[in-house]
Design a binder for these strands. Structure first.
Lengths: 368, 368
DNA sequence: TAACCATATGTGCTCGTGCACATATTTTGA
DNA sequence: TCAAAATATGTGCACGAGCACATATGGTTA
């Protein structure tokens, strides 16, 4: 009834050799006579051996250092979220000898990214988790990592050119398509939708462009139901300037009924509208469950937030690297997380579910 | 720079006692002089000791049996999904000595539930995961489990009376509210919404009633924008009968523009409509990403599916129990998973993300 | 003061693997 | 035919914690 877990020792006995020989076969260390090797392999197969990861980890007693390179959480609250996921993953993998060394750069400053990335390389980590919108700089950084031949996983922003890099995050194009669907549900025909890119380095940020393409493709595939107006604005933090800019846009374009803010800064838009006293009868679609957005979603000032689960991105990113370090599983390619449609009525459930079960965290390390 | 992980041996040296004494203090086994105990406790605190779960698990070398009691996956495809999550959790926790013994009952047959639950009790498991819609029978079963004093976690259906039982699943009431919101977005005022309960044992199933209440409350809080028509039908599998039933309903109620199917059987509804040649210009809201629903969502026959992530329910359920067995963490209370709004445009991403990273699975076991 | 008991403290083995080193067996060359 | 070299195989310890058992210490009593 109770079938015992097969150990190396069991294999050794079955194949009538010593533990050492079995060990050599398992790890392909050579120095085993061909017929003995065959015998051992047969025993492994017939008894159904799979290594006990607990014992293996204990015996290995290795320390691994994973370096992370993400924007300063102080610069933009959004980046606190992956940070939480990274922290969770750290707690979970601590017993497996995983250490996490964090490097932060200023999110609007490519030079700071380059500086920090150099510090990171000097620290000689065993793996790297990176999140950046700087396209060229990211590719340069990857070249360096490639030289020292350690695994790299990117989150949040998909740098398509780097095929061999793992990516965990959202499908930006598809999130644009989804935004199109949301406007389609909420608005009548023949109104205009404003696509609003807030922030610098927009043109160096591929994923922002992908979102735009997604929305426009959706519109094309639905008989160009909407007019699309595309606009960029850098100084969004200056509510006065931003407000004047907006009242200018809305006075010229009087048919705007939907607004698509392509990053997590929808709350700046709402605040600027508010300050100018422009009435908000718009359908607003933004991104990310940062606090200021959530408040406005509850109030009904924002209609939809598309969630890319940044907590999970950070968490999964670390776990993917741990997989590679501990189990040499090198299938780290592209993982798109779901695009959650968040409205006032399901918001709280998303916010609460960021605390995974202890055991859920811990087990993520081992399965073969 | 490199701070080594503190071991029992380190504490022992710091407090100038033996490993055994430290062990006794940690596990409160007594037989330690008070002043020595204080000294050891001080050392533990100042050095910041936390046990190495890897080593602990290996040394304990215990086997735990978790029994599951869920409806037969063959009876209703929906139940294949928690099954996947349970299986994933099993792979993940196998090395921690966790075994899973599964018991299945016929989902429409309370007697079969009782029979299987008796078999389960005879198997003397160390913990139980249960999913059932049978209210009375569930409470009875719980009484038995209470006697043998092992942890029990329920998934999918929240039996509110059993406070001490862990629950992981959806907030049914809130899912009704959310459905209200979806109709609100999609439909004009003054149309009717049909709430359709398909299947037997509806009145013995609390959570179905909660969904209805949620929708009706939403409507009340929004000036009773919609008319609500509430209907049950048992023989939904018989497409002819079901079709006639529907054409009767729709000929009497000609203002129905929205249909809310309160469980995972929306596809039966669409098929019955189709068979009767009733045109589908309805806004349809259903539950769960089972294959037949997904196909209809893609085709546009179903507008929204609310997802309660049953895979994750099964997965988390097992992990919660493992937490308790391995770490005596008894904070297993109520965990509501997010309510995902799924449309054709984000469906695939939900379907793909059911494969968690290996490491993510494995680590879920340990964090203290 | 020896004998005894109770309590306090220390030691050694175990879990399953990995790896270094020790030992056994076969092959090679003069 | 025997030693040296090359290869094959076996053994012992370590990883960190848990637990059983061995030993030490202090106190009580005859």
């Amino acid at each position: 009834m109770k079938k015992k877990r097969i150990r190396i020792k069991d294999i050794a006995e079955a194949a009538d050799v010593s533990r050492g020989t079995v060990d050599r076969v398992i790890h392909n260390r050579g120095k085993v006579a061909p017929q003995v090797k065959a015998k051992v392999e047969a025993a492994i197969l017939s008894l159904g051996y799979s290594p006990n990861i607990i014992a293996r980890t204990l015996a290995n007693n290795k320390e691994y250092h994973i370096a992370t390179l993400i924007p300063l959480p102080e610069d933009d609250i959004f980046w606190k979220l992956p940070q939480i996921g990274i922290q969770q993953a750290f707690e979970a993998t601590r017993d497996f000898g995983i250490h996490i060394d964090q490097f932060y750069f200023k999110m609007d400053d490519p030079v700071s990214f380059v500086n920090e990335s150099e510090k990171l390389v000097e620290a000689r980590p065993d793996a790297v988790l990176m999140a950046t919108q700087f396209y060229r700089e990211a590719i340069n950084f990857y070249r360096q990592i490639e030289k020292i031949d350690i695994p790299l996983v990117g989150i949040n922003t998909h740098i398509k050119e780097l095929d061999k890099v793992g990516y965990i995050g959202q499908n930006s194009y598809q999130s644009g398509v989804l935004a199109g669907k949301l406007f389609d549900i909420s608005l009548h025909e023949n109104v205009d939708i404003l696509i609003l890119h807030l922030g610098s380095s927009v043109s160096n940020a591929m994923h922002i462009m992908d979102k735009k393409r997604g929305l426009m493709d959706y519109n094309n595939n639905h008989n160009n139901k909407f007019g699309i107006i595309n606009v960029e604005f850098r100084e969004y933090r200056d509510l006065d300037k931003f407000g004047y800019f907006l009242s200018d846009v809305f006075s010229r374009e009087t048919n705007i009924k939907g607004v698509f803010i392509t990053n997590s800064r929808a709350h700046y838009f709402i605040n600027a509208l508010d300050r100018m006293g422009i009435s908000n009868d718009l359908c607003t679609v933004g991104f990310d469950l940062i606090e200021k957005n959530c408040i406005l979603l509850r109030k009904g000032e924002i209609d939809f937030l598309i969630n890319q689960d940044p907590v999970r991105q950070g968490n999964l990113g670390i776990h993917t690297l741990v997989d590679q370090l501990l189990f040499n599983r090198s299938d780290a390619t592209i993982t798109y997380l779901p695009l959650d449609i968040v409205v006032a009525e399901n918001l709280d459930l998303y916010l609460l579910s960021n605390t995974p079960s202890t055991s859920e965290i811990k087990t993520q390390i081992m399965a073969k």
